[in-house]
Design a binder for these strands. Structure first.
Length: 264
DNA sequence: ATGGCCAATATGATTGGA
């Protein structure tokens, strides 16, 4: 079972690259963020042609998340609980039946939070608090759980090309990393970090200032696994080469392989 | 963290992104 996450930065602009990458990497489940597309306009056909079921939660202009799955969804839940005033399409959750019981996938697009002196930063922090509470509740189920997405969090200095330059940024400032640690410390494993200690495994390079050419990247897209999922972790990786394709997203896909059989 | 971008909107300018 291969599970991947990719912030595509517009599903309409990225559909050709997405189809090419799905054909190449062959994920069973792919979590997408920043689809920037209302559900009625989502390009379903080319993805269904590859054999994927779709769970989508979009909105006009911004945000938008989706889960593609080769397996049938038992359940799909839209939105992160905890704030009725939050109308951003940033969270979608799906359950799939496996031989080991329910496999739960949460696809998330955590708020950026910049600039930090605006109301965007408290929104990010409260969103992280809600994610912590959600995860705390879900972990009680003691099932394989994967939190997959664009967390907009640089977990550690080795995950950014120039740590001092980023210390005040919403993605890296101490309070942000503290919240991320609180999340992970509930009992989650960072799949990429569990399989390698290589620095500079970036998942994002800004379109600006020649960031890609200079390898000025960030590691902000993550797959966090519950113990029941981590016990079955066999591999993790970052598809860096996708950033060099024509018309790239500024993020690249990240994936994990779990030894989980699915009931057809 | 900026020299340099990209996407969405009815836009020829602004907002959001990271």
């Amino acid at each position: 079972m291969r599970i991947a996450t990719w912030n595509v930065n517009s599903i309409k602009q990225r559909i050709e690259n997405l189809v090419a990458w799905l054909s190449e990497r062959q994920p069973d489940i792919a979590c997408l963020q920043e689809t920037k597309c209302v559900d009625e306009a989502f390009p379903r056909a080319p993805l269904e042609a590859l054999g994927y079921n779709l769970a989508i939660h979009g909105q006009k202009t911004f945000n938008g998340v989706a889960i593609l799955s080769k397996y049938r969804f038992d359940e799909v839940i839209l939105g992160l609980p905890g704030d009725n005033r939050d109308d951003h399409a940033r969270f979608i959750e799906a359950v799939i039946s496996t031989a080991a019981g329910g496999l739960r996938i949460a696809c998330l697009y955590l708020p950026n939070g910049n600039p930090v002196n605006s109301d965007k930063y408290p929104f990010k922090i409260s969103w992280m608090d809600r994610l912590i509470k959600y995860t705390y509740e879900r972990l009680k189920l003691e099932e394989p759980l994967v939190l997959a997405g664009d967390f907009n969090v640089i977990p550690a200095p080795e995950d950014v090309y120039d740590p001092p330059a980023w210390i005040e940024d919403a993605l890296f400032r101490p309070q942000t990393r503290e919240k991320f640690r609180a999340l992970v410390n509930l009992g989650l494993i960072d799949a990429v970090r569990a399989t390698t200690d290589t620095a500079s495994l970036y998942t994002f390079w800004d379109y600006q200032a020649g960031a890609w050419q200079k390898n000025n990247g960030l590691r902000i897209d993550h797959l966090l696994l519950s113990a029941q999922a981590a016990d079955r972790l066999s591999a993790a990786g970052v598809d860096k080469h996708v950033r060099s394709w024509e018309k790239p997203s500024d993020h690249v896909p990240v994936y994990v392989d779990l030894d989980i059989e699915v009931q057809r």
